[in-house]
């Protein structure tokens, strides 16, 4: 009988083994982030990804940024190779900027990035509808924390709004929380969204989610296409790096080739307010 028990147990344990897939390892690839806004020149950032245990110091930073790529934007009968530009106040501090070609609402634009033997392609369009900001305001949550809000005219039910904010002294807009809102989800003719400040890696002076007295804030509302909105939602998802969420897929975006990233068009409006 003992033999029977041992046979049953060992038989179960060893015959039942499941072969798992091989562990996925880090795969080097490019990261492309490009935008073309209505009335603005295109801006494209090209970088590398790195292993998660990488310590990125100043020297490594140089290696992450791709500075010798050929970046071309075309659309509406125009075409331009973007120029590598340096701005040490932002990251990446080297990026590609247009000069003469400016985005037009309703127009489609193609992006082509060449680097050695790699070619990355994408296409986007700038929506026709320009968001109408009816007003900006703020509310004191406590004596030291003010939360800004933006009132948007909900004229176009197909609009997909991405929301950004920054101090006017900062060079870049940062995604706020919420990162975006679909017009179709808002029942009224207009709606107000209170914004929470995103923590920026570069914004080490303050880690607060709110603003303080004297802060001058610029709020940007960008209308993007539904596909671009979905891509940015996926980016937000990818930021939720918590093991208790049953998530494991990876963000890829709309760039063809060995790259992750987004090339998107936007029609944006900006308003400013000062916390008094």
């Amino acid at each position: 009988m003992k033999k029977l028990i041992v046979t049953i147990i060992t038989g179960t344990l060893f015959s039942a083994c499941i072969k798992e897939g091989a562990p996925k390892k880090f795969v080097p690839k490019f990261v492309v982030e490009g935008i073309i806004e209505n009335g603005e020149v295109p801006v494209v950032k090209v970088m590398h990804n790195v292993p998660s245990n990488f310590v990125i110091d100043e020297k490594q930073l140089e290696a992450i940024i791709v500075r010798w790529a050929s970046v071309k934007v075309s659309g509406g009968g125009e075409e331009e190779f973007l120029t590598l530009t340096r701005n040490d106040k932002v990251f990446p501090y080297l990026f590609y900027v247009g000069n003469s070609l400016k985005g037009k609402a309703g127009q489609k634009y193609k992006l082509e990035v060449k680097y050695n033997n790699d070619i990355f392609l994408s296409e986007t369009e700038i929506p026709l509808h320009k968001p109408a900001i009816k007003g900006v305001s703020y509310e004191w949550l406590d004596p030291e924390k003010a939360q800004p809000a933006v009132n948007i005219d909900n004229a176009n039910p197909e609009a997909n709004y991405l929301l950004f904010a920054k101090l006017v002294t900062q060079p870049d807009f940062y995604p706020s929380a919420p990162r975006g809102i679909k017009a179709i989800d808002q029942a009224g003719k207009e709606f107000t969204v209170a914004l929470t400040r995103s923590r920026s890696l570069l914004d080490s002076t303050s880690s607060s989610r709110y603003y303080a007295k004297g802060d001058e804030i610029a709020i940007k509302v960008s209308n993007v296409s539904a596909s671009s909105y979905t891509l940015w939602s996926a980016v937000a998802q990818q930021g939720l790096q918590l093991s208790f969420l049953n998530y494991s897929s990876n963000f890829s975006g709309n760039i063809e080739g060995n790259a992750a990233g987004i090339w998107y068009g936007a029609n944006a409006s900006v308003d400013k307010l000062t916390i008094k």
Partner: peptide
């Protein structure tokens, strides 16, 4: 079991994770 992160990249002014095999 949990899904590890194997890579990262800077995008949209934040750091995004690249995941390894599910629950590996």
């Amino acid at each position: 079991a949990y899904t590890p992160t194997v890579g990262m990249f800077y995008f949209g002014n934040s750091v995004l994770a690249e995941y390894g095999s599910k629950n590996s």
